[in-house]
């Protein structure tokens, strides 16, 4: 079946499948990743995905605070997804919104399947995701960067986690929505996956998809996750080759 096309003013997709920012249907925005840029935490990572810019810090494993949260047989994973007041067009109140509380929960549940929490009983592993500039795809870019920061912190993981949002514009499934596409498009589906074990750890949908589009969206997300995973490995390699060469120079 075909869903009616949104009768918005400006088409988000040209007849030959080119998007308003010049990208093709299955093309991701330009992504930049950097690992280990903060001194005072166990691990850190920075990601730019288009105009979305996020910095992540990991502390731990460390003693759980407050103490009653500690679990005898495993570490607890705590996350915070937060948007800086200057990250959006209109100033966002720094107090956590209901949206941020929900995203904090789904991000934690997207990372938990990968992190080997059993290795660190009674401790807490804390992941702080700060959105410095928001231009759609912040929860997915936040997850991709959080997995990098956890890896840099040396926390044992079953697999990496990477995430991308797929969407629907003018009836076509597309990769990695930007803000304009997210606002005026017909669907937004963030997907996080563990690329080697091929499992979905975050799945949300806002908007309307047929079953065929759902299936296409999941396959497209899988391809996006593969691309991001290669970039994650590259970012980690760069961090360690550059720090080794720095040590040699000493």
């Amino acid at each position: 079946m075909v869903e009616a096309v949104d009768s918005g003013s400006k088409p988000l997709l040209s007849p030959d499948g080119i998007r308003t920012d010049g990208r093709k249907i299955d093309e991701m925005r330009k992504v930049k990743m950097e690992v280990g840029l903060l001194k005072n935490c166990s691990g850190s990572a920075y990601i730019e995905q288009g105009k979305t810019k996020i910095i992540v810090a990991v502390h731990g494993p460390r003693e759980a605070h407050p103490k009653h949260l500690a679990q005898p047989g495993r570490a607890i994973l705590r996350t915070r997804y937060h948007m800086a007041p200057f990250s959006t067009s209109d100033r966002k109140s720094p107090a956590p919104s209901r949206r941020e509380i929900e995203i904090t929960k789904v991000i934690r549940e997207a990372l938990e399947p990968a992190v080997m929490l059993d290795e660190f009983p009674k401790t807490s592993i804390d992941v702080f995701i700060e959105v410095l500039q928001a231009d759609a795809g912040t929860r997915s870019a936040g997850i991709t960067a959080a997995a990098l920061a956890l890896a840099e912190a040396g926390i044992p993981m079953r697999d990496m986690v990477a995430a991308v949002a797929v969407g629907k514009l003018e009836g076509r499934v597309v990769m990695d929505l930007n803000e304009e596409e997210d606002e005026h498009g017909q669907a937004d589906m963030p997907v996080a996956m563990m690329p080697n074990v091929n499992r979905i750890t975050l799945l949300q949908l806002n908007g309307r998809l047929t079953r065929a589009e759902l299936e296409e969206g999941l396959s497209m997300a899988r391809r996006g996750v593969d691309q991001l995973y290669e970039m994650q490995k590259q970012a980690l390699r760069e961090k360690y080759t550059s720090s080794e060469s720095a040590q040699e120079e000493d």
Partner: peptide, 28 residues
């Protein structure tokens, strides 16, 4: 889901993962 079979919202909740096949089975 709505009458036509269009899915209008999805939420995965909980600390585990699912496969792509499971996601489509859940849709069905």
């Amino acid at each position: 889901t709505i009458e036509s079979g269009v899915v209008a919202s999805i939420q995965k909740s909980g600390s585990d993962s699912i496969t792509m096949e499971e996601a489509l089975k859940i849709y069905d």
